Amino acid sequence: MRDEQPSRRHGGRNAGTRALLVFLAVGALLAALLHDPGTSVTGRPVAAPAPSSPSPEATTAPRPEPAPAPDPCAVAAGALPLRARLAQLLVVGVDPRGPADALGIVQRDQVGGIFVGGDAPGLLSGGALGAVRAAAALPLIVAVDDEGGRVQRVDQLDGDLPSARRMAADLSPDQVRALAHERALRLRDRGVTMDLAPVVDTSGQADRTVIGDRSFSPDPEVAARYALAFADGLHDAGVTPVLKHFPGHGNTSGDSHLGAVRSPPLDVLRTTDLVPYRDIDRYGDVVVMLGHIDVPGLTGGKPATLSGEAYRLLREEFGFTGPAMTDDLGAMKAVTDLVDLPDAVRQALAAGADLALWSSGGRVAQVLDHLEASVAAGTLPAARVDEAARRVLAAKGSC
């Protein structure tokens, strides 16, 4: 038994040595292969192994892509009850003589905006808007239509502003920018946040026609240049411009205040009234107002404000991502001859509007009741309401 022990110990050493040598050889081979997997340890090229499908056990599942961050404006809109979401899509006319009417509407209905029209702008003087804006749970749009010429609201307070046609005739674009900036500073000091201007329609019609001297020029390039200057002046003072009246009111037959109107066909508008909307990002953060215009080849006999095709044109061809607003749904016969206010608002929102305007005021609860019932019935898609509310809250800086 004692004679066997040395041979076992010797055999153990030999086995350990052999194992070490094998380990070193394998290591050298692996190192060579890792250094150049196409070359043997002798330097001779070796054929690449045929690819084989990994076994299910050896396959590593791809890591899932991280979920995109939620849109804060979609979250903010979704957090509002339905009626509050719908109210944010309304811009309602108020009595311009003082704050009582506006204060009641904002406190009671929390509308997204108010419109101050008329020629007795007591609401725009003496800080009267302060209490109205303070009553809003979310930032309040305070809109006026102060284009100049025959459409201006604060001339009794801040002096006369020339018409667009007169500006283009007498002033350079830089001078128009300065003029709009000065006007907007005064509007902002009065509590106004949005001016329903500039008009970008192209028109060579007589001054007192529906657009006429409200247009900078019949030349679309000139009209765009001056409209951009006016919009820049408003922007510089912190007032949101509204480009109007998409798809083009400058060459229509008739006046949409008085009844149905028709524009030239769509292919003609592409060379005239629609030209200023190209490269729309150059205007910065703006709202686009749609007019009550029947466009052959586009709206199928409807006013553009109620036509899904008109909103799709604005979004898809012109790439506009900001809020789209209707012209007045409560006082213009191109719409009121067709449909009552509550359903006009529903149709406009369902078609693609984000802000529904009526200057006549009142009827807010009735409109909201109708819109809530329409969402329940599916005639106003909830997804459309959410989309519109997201755009409006984003434009207000609420998210």
Rank of each mutant, 00 (worst) to 15 (best):
D3Q: 08
S7T: 06
H10Q: 12
G11P: 09
L20I: 13
V22A: 15
L29F: 13
L30E: 14
L30G: 14
A31T: 10
T39I: 08
T42W: 08
P45W: 13
S52L: 12
R63T: 02
P64D: 01
P66D: 07
A77C: 03
L82Y: 13
R85W: 06
Q88T: 04
L90Y: 12
P96W: 06
L103N: 11
G104C: 06
G113P: 02
P121W: 10
G122H: 14
S125Q: 12
G127Q: 09
G127P: 03
G127H: 11
A128L: 06
A128W: 01
A135K: 11
A137Q: 07
L140S: 00
I141E: 15
R150A: 07
V151L: 07
D160K: 14
S163A: 11
A164D: 04
A168I: 05
S172L: 13
A180T: 05
D189M: 04
V192Y: 01
M194P: 00
D195Q: 04
Q205L: 10
D207L: 06
G212S: 00
D213W: 08
R214D: 02
S217G: 01
A223L: 03
L228N: 11
P241K: 11
V242N: 08
H245R: 11
F246K: 08
G254C: 03
L258K: 15
V268F: 06
L269A: 02
D279G: 09
V286M: 14
L290F: 10
H292G: 00
P296T: 02
T299K: 05
G300V: 03
E309W: 09
Y311G: 09
Y311F: 14
R312H: 11
R312F: 04
L314K: 05
E316D: 14
P323M: 15
A324K: 10
A324N: 05
M325A: 13
D328L: 10
G330L: 12
M332H: 04
V335M: 01
D337M: 06
D343H: 12
A344R: 02
V345A: 15
S360C: 11
G362T: 02
A365I: 05
D369F: 05
L371C: 03
T379A: 15
V385R: 07
V392M: 08
K396F: 08
G397M: 07
S398L: 14
